[in-house]
Amino acid sequence: MGNLNLVHRVLSKFQKRLPEELAEMNKALERGDMGRIAHIAHRVKGTSASVSAKGLALAAAEIEDLSRAGRATDIPARIEHFRDEWEKCLDEAVVLLSGGDIV
């Protein structure tokens, strides 16, 4: 895209948004609201894919599929996996945002 400013803005937003999404997903899980989880996971999948966070998009897709299939007991483990992916992503984002190896 050749626009560092944009990358910066988008990644910061992404960084801020994800924890909120994760918290909301956990809340929905406590309520057993599969529809809500599927919705959030779907959204996260789209956003992640848009910022090229492939591992994260994949992890979100797994959660979406499980919640649509109503497999509530399998979801916590996948949310953990999602969190791991998120940590990885965060490390990369920090490098990018610090103006490191991009270009």
Binding site: M1, N3, L6, K13, R43, G46
Partner: peptide, 17 residues
């Protein structure tokens, strides 16, 4: 789009074109 990250990217790309 209700995802402001996506709208921001779209706006930027389309404006560039």
């Amino acid at each position: 789009d209700d995802d402001d990250i996506v709208t921001e990217i779209l706006e930027n790309v389309l404006a560039q074109f």
